[in-house]
Nucleic acid binder design. Structure first.
Lengths: 348, 348
DNA sequence: CTGAAAGCGCTTACAG
DNA sequence: CTGAAAGCGCTTACAG
């Protein structure tokens, strides 16, 4: 159980107790096969007796590692990220790495700074979930040799050539719209993501393209602005409701907007899907429990997290040279269309 | 910008460049007032030239600190925690500490282990948001002198005497039920939290007590089991719907269950609040946007996070002796009742 | 298989 | 105000 002393037991205490050198204790821990069985047992006994646990700061200093990875995400309060985080945390924890989470919202576009520990490279790797960070902030982290490897997930910055884990946003949008087309819809609208988001264009283009390929057109007035928030979804509903030339179905760039949209419509006595069909994107937990339950594109969020984590671990094992020699992979994960109650044939 | 070398610049490089000792560089960084202005400027210039940033592992080793705090929470995927996390991250980041997040779900009751970095005290402090962790796992972290301080938030473990940040769950429940009483309800039910959760009893007792104090009784068949999940809310709705002796209002121990309850009822063509009123607890983002919007107890989640973080910082500044001498405070934060569409006078 | 020794990059009494 | 030196607790060639 460890004696009650004024400081934690160190490797020296263990060495004393076991009658060996600190080097041997260290080897027993990191490479047990290289020490004799007798020694090994003596050391393990001494470790138990003293209650020793390795001091990570010392190990990290010596090994020139940090034992930590940073996750940069735009909004900790957004439920979209929680499962991704979960997937990352799971893989990193298995790898013995700790996960530092940093909400990037405070550091808006005008703020160049990243969290201290990222800027100073006090992490061994970085996963970026925010495509709106400043490019220079992300790259000015010392010379290439000391810069921790980085991977993007979900969002990315086109100018920065790093591995990306994502879904085919355009193809997913095509699927969403084809579902509406197959129900008989011909007038299909879209609530967009934020204008400055990398995903916004591909989701809009996918939707537009799907319509064009069957000879239809998405009227500009059916394209509603949005910013991924519940609020912007209800704003879109107000516009929809106030217009005389309405789409019979609306494909939304994310679930939150879809739920905000449906909520506002329901409040205005507009029935979904009887009067208008709605499709979302993401498949938040709430999507299946909302009334009506939401037809949506299901992003494999835990898998995205796990994949990004594994990709990062892989890059961390490479030398800077290997990393820059090897092209940054782009992993595209499959999505599913979850068909639920919010879509039906058009009215009339 | 820093030269392009094979390793990051160290304090020695700066000392060289500035023509001073490493001690002076260190002082300039940690205690600028103590060095002369000329020296200070030379050092700052050298820092800029070399692109130096402090190596935290080295600093931490030397200062016998870790520069990190751990957050133990039961479920990263639960939106309830995201804003709390946000509040914690904000305060800790200002204090220059990094936040290690650990999902405790993988380590269920049968698993004694905490994350490595917690068990080995490779953190300077711990915030526990999970009242179901094993007591011994939380306490067996070496002798009192080396054990990192710990505070509880939202949930806690009664046997462990540590600061707690919480709301008055019983009083909040009284308020929720009084609201229903004031609308004229006399038959009020409750969907409970998980049986093994610290909050479950106080929320149920508050509800019961509020009824008793006006001479009413909560019938046992109106008390539905739950586990804080959407799913358990819809299960309760099925029981409610299948019964002939129904309450006219149901107070739910959390918003997710309330939303699951309403969702299932709506699906069964039972109108909320016309046929049954519903009150939740937490005030998730979704609560205001659901249809009908949810009357609920609003927990100040960001404030809970910030307060827990500040309390922990305070404890971290104390010696172990001071900590054990000073009684662990219990900070009770005020809640508000947000009255929305899901509550109305009883039918008939 | 094992130990002595150097060193990871800092900070901090101590002495001046 | 500043520097030389010790030391935080590890790991790892190196030598045997």
């Amino acid at each position: 159980m460890g004696k009650s002393g004024s400081k934690a037991p160190s490797i020296r205490d263990v060495a004393h107790a076991a009658g060996v050198s600190t080097a041997t204790v260290s080897r027993t821990l990191s490479n047990p096969d290289v020490v004799s069985e007798t020694t090994r047992e003596a050391v393990f006994l001494a470790i138990r007796e003293t209650g020793y646990t390795v001091n990570l700061a010392a190990r990290n200093l010596r090994k020139r590692e940090t034992g930590a990875v940073a996750i940069l995400l735009p909004n900790l309060a957004n439920p979209f990220f929680s499962r991704i985080l979960s997937g990352i945390a799971e893989v990193m924890s298995e790898a013995g790495l700790s996960v530092l989470i940093s909400d990037t919202t405070p550091m808006a576009k005008d703020d160049h700074r990243l969290p201290e520990y990222v800027n100073q490279n006090n992490v061994d790797g970085i996963i970026v979930l925010d495509g709106n960070l400043r490019q220079d902030a992300l790259l000015n982290r010392g010379s290439p040799e000391v810069r921790a490897p980085m991977v993007f997930a979900c969002e990315w910055i086109s100018q920065i050539d790093r591995p990306i884990v994502t879904v085919d946003n355009q193809e997913a949008s095509v699927r969403a719209v084809q579902h509406l087309l197959s129900l008989g819809h011909r007038r299909i609208g879209h609530i967009c993501g934020p204008p400055d988001n990398v995903l916004t264009a591909s989701r809009l283009e996918g939707a537009r393209g799907a319509m064009q390929s069957v000879g239809l057109r998405m009227k500009p007035e059916w394209i509603y602005p949005g910013d991924f928030s519940l609020q912007s979804g209800s704003e879109a509903a107000k516009i929809w409701h106030g217009s005389s030339d309405r789409p019979t179905a609306v494909y939304c760039a994310c679930d939150e907007m879809a739920l905000g949209f449906i909520g506002e419509l329901t409040r205005r006595k507009v029935a979904v899907p009887q009067e208008v069909s709605v499709v979302g994107f993401d498949d938040l937990d709430m999507a299946a429990h909302f009334v009506p339950s939401l037809t949506t594109i299901c992003q494999p969020r835990v898998t995205i997290g796990r994949t990004a984590a594994r990709l990062l671990l892989e890059r961390m094992r490479m030398t800077p040279q290997e990393r820059s020699a090897r092209p940054a992979p782009r992993v595209v994960l499959p999505v599913k269309l979850a068909v639920r109650e919010s879509t039906a044939p058009p009215p009339g």
